[in-house]
Write a protein that binds this DNA or RNA. Structure first.
Lengths: 92, 92
DNA sequence: TCAATACTTAAGTGAATGCTACAGCATCAA
DNA sequence: TTGATGCTGTAGCATTCACTTAAGTATTGA
């Protein structure tokens, strides 16, 4: 759904069409995305049009960047640990 | 548990002692770890001693390295997309 | 021999997840 | 004004998860 919305705004049923689930389920997903401020939506007549919240996406981007740094540190630690353990194994 | 085992082999109850759950739960976790070949264990008398499977850890390490590369590509794509979208927004 | 220790197994529990089914309610077009 | 369309809300269901409880078995030390 986020991928579809990254192409441009879409109505609820446009979002639901390619998905193997009911409209109800899609609305429930959308509710979560709106609560998380990843999606904004506006209802005109009977059609609700949804768009990606670029601002939040950028926050997500920053969050990911931090996690990535954290992850790389952890990864280097694991590498160091395995290298150490491997040499200990050899030493016996 | 994996962290504890990275220090060295341990019995089931040694692994369970610091954890806020029953021995039963720990055994169930261990079963999963053994099925995943992350842990090897051997029973001598009534004590089962568990060790980390370094070989599998190294495979995990490689898998992580690949995911990391994949993730970085996706991340760069997201960055590019957001940059593009931001400039389009400005253009209006 | 018998109690303590170390583990094992099966069955059940409670919360969360991701749905569907169904009964609506506006809105729009004819 | 009526039927179709687009969406909404609620109830219920199946599954999964991460446990606990309880009832074992096997081993060990005194």
């Amino acid at each position: 759904m986020v991928e579809r919305l990254s192409v441009g705004p879409a109505s609820v049923s446009e979002l639901a069409k390619p998905l193997p689930m009911t409209l109800s389920a899609v609305i429930q997903h959308l509710k979560v995305l709106e609560e998380a401020r990843l999606v904004r939506s506006e209802k005109v007549g009977r059609v609700r049009t949804c768009t990606l919240e670029i601002g939040t996406m950028i926050q997500v981007e920053r969050w990911i960047a931090e996690r990535k740094r954290f992850w790389e540190r952890r990864y280097d630690q694991l590498e160091a640990y395995l290298a150490q353990t491997a040499s200990e194994e050899k030493g016996r």
